[in-house]
Amino acid sequence: MQREITVRVDGTARPLTVDTRTTLLDALRERLGITSPKKGCDHGQCGACTVLSGGRRVLSCLTLAVTQDGAEVVTAEGLAPGAAGAGQQLEGGLHPVQRAFVDCDALQCGYCTPGQVVSAVGALDEFAAGWPSAVTEGPGAPGLDRAEVAERMSGNLCRCAAYVNIVTAVLRAATSLPAGPTAGKEVDG
């Protein structure tokens, strides 16, 4: 059964027709040709499909597209300010998290990478909002260290196992980011 929906993806309104069965991930990849979010497992077990929806990191493989009518979705391709067509302007068009991933060699095959990057952006926002994690000790606001980053990034599997570099990259990006939430919202610009 088909439905007409409009999703804003990386700042651009994208009207499309979807099957009620279509996931947000498949709508992006197979209908819109936006292949930055990846399909690694299709069951919420790897994190490669992570996007921001409404500013929060979510799994697009477990999100039915039909529920995203009117939603604001940001993929790794759209993270950087003025990112439309960012693939063409490689040096300038990277978000600080992306820059840190390249600098720290926090990737190998690259397939989990866009999901890692988006997840890191979401995780840093969550951290900035004072959210605790499973490794946060005590009642107050958590401090950002390797253990905190590793736990918060554990929903993104990397089979090449760039984990130690991913943690370093996220910490580096965290120190270079302006204070306060940065994700998702600025992309429109």
Binding site: T35, S36, T75, A86, G87, G93, Q98, L107, G110
Partner: peptide, 27 residues
């Protein structure tokens, strides 16, 4: 040296097999 494919991979614009732009594809 940083890897040359780093930028397209962090953006997600590196094209993997299934993602090749092809019109009218069947599944």
């Amino acid at each position: 040296l940083p890897r040359r494919d780093g930028a397209v991979k962090v953006l997600g614009t590196a094209t993997y097999a299934y993602e090749t732009p092809l019109a009218n594809a069947a599944y």
